[in-house]
């Protein structure tokens, strides 16, 4: 028997109210799901600040001024300065830039690999599927931070290697999600019809299978960004992530940890920025997952 068409597969990607009543319903959606709306607003602001950091920030991120080290907030330095007299506000803004760049680069890479891997496994089935998915099972069993530490440990810390390590931690789960969807899609009538008029595997992938799994990929990817940003910060905190003098939130916390007693704001400011970002990504991701992929949303309830 053919599987029944799940209702969510044909639903529009936008929140239901918005799609039905046009953009005028956006405030209503924002009121009903205010945590997700607040998270989205915060993240939008953060992206603007991060993108504009080189122009918005009052100083270059590595400009030292040892005569004005460890100063509290004042007119010239709104958030004060660190132990080398570097402007804290500048470094937090540039830290956002690094964190988001690394996060988005890794989520793009892991999505591409995961979608390709999952589509191939799900479409061909049989021995190919078994072999491809054994690799996924193997990698998924490892905690992601451990995998990231080991990869950067073997290849050494650099921005490219950090992105590669983060990609390693996330793509297996993406592949598993996509595969399960493709296995269900493969049996659908329109795929059979496309095949009947002579569509090859390449065309089926590009035109039918991948586009129809896209809503799952979007939901999964949003949740993944928060995990990836968190892992980057942790790697940098341990000292095997982003290297000084480049600012990363994790690295800033590491460098200022010894001043926790005398100048706690040096730790609190980047820690708050990091925590708020990860929480916002989680809240938005779960709201999206509930909309776009009832299975993901339900699991996390």
């Amino acid at each position: 028997m053919r599987p029944l068409t799940p209702a969510f597969a044909t639903e529009p990607v936008l929140p239901r109210g918005v799609a039905a009543r046009g953009p005028a319903a956006l405030p209503r959606w924002a009121r009903r799901e205010w945590p997700a709306a607040a998270a989205a607003a915060f993240l939008a602001l953060l992206v603007v600040l991060a993108a504009g950091a080189p122009w918005l920030a009052p100083y270059p991120y590595d400009r030292q001024d040892l005569d004005h080290a460890l100063q509290g907030p004042e007119r010239l330095h709104w958030l004060g300065t660190d132990q080398y007299g570097r402007d804290l506000l500048t470094r937090v803004l540039h830290g956002a830039r690094i964190s988001l760049t690394v996060g988005f680069a890794a989520v793009t890479a892991e999505s591409v690999i995961g979608v390709a891997w999952g589509t191939l496994a799900g479409f061909y089935g049989g021995a190919a599927d078994a072999a491809l998915m054994r690799v996924v099972d193997l990698l998924i069993a490892f905690p992601s931070l451990l995998l990231a530490v080991l990869v950067t440990g073997i290849f050494g810390p650099s921005l490219v290697n950090i992105v590669a390590a983060l990609t390693m931690t996330a793509w297996p789960a993406m592949a598993r999600t996509v595969r399960s969807e493709v296995v269900a899609l493969r049996e659908r009538e329109y795929i059979e019809a496309a095949r009947a008029i002579g569509a090859g595997p390449g065309r089926l992938f590009r035109r039918h299978l991948v586009p129809n799994a896209m809503h799952l990929v979007a939901a999964r990817a949003t949740l993944d960004v928060s995990a990836l940003v968190l892992t980057e910060a942790t790697l940098s905190f341990i000292g095997i992530g982003v290297q000084p003098p480049r600012p990363s939130w994790g690295l800033m916390i590491n460098e200022s940890f010894q001043f926790l007693q005398s100048h706690p704001y040096l730790v609190i400011v980047p820690a708050a920025a990091l925590s708020l970002t990860v929480i916002a990504l989680n809240v938005l991701g779960e709201a999206l997952a509930e909309r776009l992929d009832p299975r993901l949303g339900g699991q996390r309830g």
């Binding site: 968190l230 905190f237 590491n254 926790l260 007693q261 609190i268 820690a271 925590s275 990860v278």
Partner: peptide, 22 residues
């Protein structure tokens, strides 16, 4: 639960050290 899963462990450590140790 959301805080526990989102806040990085080194931030938790910073807060605990600041309050309970320092």
């Amino acid at each position: 639960v959301i805080a526990g899963l989102s806040v990085p462990s080194f931030v938790v450590a910073a807060v605990l050290v600041l309050l309970f140790a320092l």
